[in-house]
Amino acid sequence: MLLTVTHTTRYAFADSVTHGLQRLRLKPKSTHGQEVIEWDMDLSGAKREAEYDDQHHNHTELVSIEPGVPEVVVTCRGTVRTMDNNGVTGQHTGHMPLWCFLRPTPLTRAGNRVRSLVASIGVDRHDTLNYLHALSHAIAEQVEYLPGTTDVTTTAEQSLTAGQGVCQDHAHIFISAGRLLDIPMRYVGGYLLMDEKVEQEAGHGWAEAYVQGLGWVGFDISNAICPDERYIRVATGCDYSEAAPVTGIAIGAGETQLDVHLSVGQKMLGGQQQSSPGGQQQQMQGR
């Protein structure tokens, strides 16, 4: 499947910025069943300072905010060819050893609710793949998908206790539970072409578990499926904070207003395109 993406992130500042840096993980890579045909990123109000691959092999760019600008706009446009591998990403690559994906993080540290969830799954834990599918269904049943009830700082334990959250929270609960069973788990951020829906989130999140004999296998708890050719993988991490598309700091910015627009479409024969617009919040710290 040939997917096209246009993703614009705009930060408007109430006061004059004296210094600001942003870390961008917005460019997908040609790996794990996808090929990046083209990808461009335009900046307004900021300039590139460096680019590198981080510890998770994510393409990362550091940009500085130009002092005094009223806003920063980051626009990405690209085309990616994807394929359906039944959710299987494959064997582990990159700089991080598998044991790193077993350690708890502040967002995924298990509490009593997560431990109870793990104990409640009536499937043999040694049948790892079936257990993970059962775990995914249990999380979807217990945590209602409800935008606006959580944010980027909400932990797995908090969202499971509240019984509400979004894709990020579903993924964090799944990751937290899997690590209790010594299964390497990681967070994946990217894009999703929605079926028969006009609106969608500006970015999507799901989880991957390392299953012996298969390698990394994806689970989209919010949509109750394993990722297929409608998904574009952009960044991975031990939790959302390590795969967030935009993070940064702006000194002197005052109140910051965030506006995000996303269009993900399928490129059809004859140059036609089907697309779905939408928006969501991303992470930026200001002070």
Rank of each mutant, 00 (worst) to 15 (best):
G279P: 02
G271S: 09
E141R: 15
M284Q: 09
Q274V: 01
H261D: 12
V63A: 07
E51S: 15
A14L: 12
Y240Q: 05
D127R: 10
H204Y: 02
G252A: 09
T155I: 02
P147I: 01
Y240K: 03
R81K: 14
G122Q: 10
R125K: 13
E66R: 07
G203T: 11
Y52K: 09
N112P: 00
G265S: 08
I225W: 01
H56K: 01
G205H: 07
H19V: 12
G252F: 06
E71M: 12
M83Q: 14
A224H: 14
G94Q: 04
P184V: 10
V188T: 04
G45A: 08
I37M: 06
L132A: 07
D127L: 13
N85Y: 09
V246P: 00
G33E: 01
V246C: 09
V36S: 01
V118Q: 07
P184Y: 06
G165T: 05
H59E: 09
D42V: 13
N86P: 02
A138S: 11
Q274L: 14
G213H: 03
N112M: 10
A50E: 15
A207S: 12
M96P: 06
H32D: 08
V234S: 01
V260N: 07
T236V: 15
W39E: 08
M284P: 03
P245E: 13
D40N: 15
G218H: 00
P106Q: 05
Q212P: 00
I121P: 00
D42E: 14
E66K: 08
S16V: 10
P147W: 00
G213K: 08
E66M: 12
L62C: 05
T79Y: 07
F174E: 00
H32T: 07
W39I: 05
A50G: 11
Y52H: 13
Q272M: 14
A235V: 05
G203M: 10
A224P: 00
H133N: 12
T9I: 12
L129H: 11
A243I: 04
K47F: 13
Q273M: 13
Q257S: 13
L146Y: 11
L102Y: 04
T256A: 09
S263H: 11
E71A: 15
V217A: 03
S136K: 04
V143T: 11
T6I: 12
G87A: 02
A140N: 10
E196N: 12
G278E: 03
V80D: 05
P245W: 02
M185A: 11
N130W: 11
S116N: 14
W39N: 06
T128Y: 03
P97L: 07
V264W: 02
K47S: 13
S44W: 07
G178D: 03
Q281H: 12
Q164I: 06
G279C: 13
Y231E: 00
H59P: 08
T79V: 14
T93N: 09
D15I: 06
R103H: 11
T93R: 09
S275W: 05
T82H: 06
G78Q: 00
A46I: 01
T6L: 12
Q164Y: 05
D195L: 10
A162S: 13
Q280T: 15
D228N: 10
I175Y: 00
G33K: 00
I251T: 11
A162F: 04
V264H: 03
C226K: 04
I37T: 12
G237H: 04
H19A: 15
Y11L: 10
R125I: 10
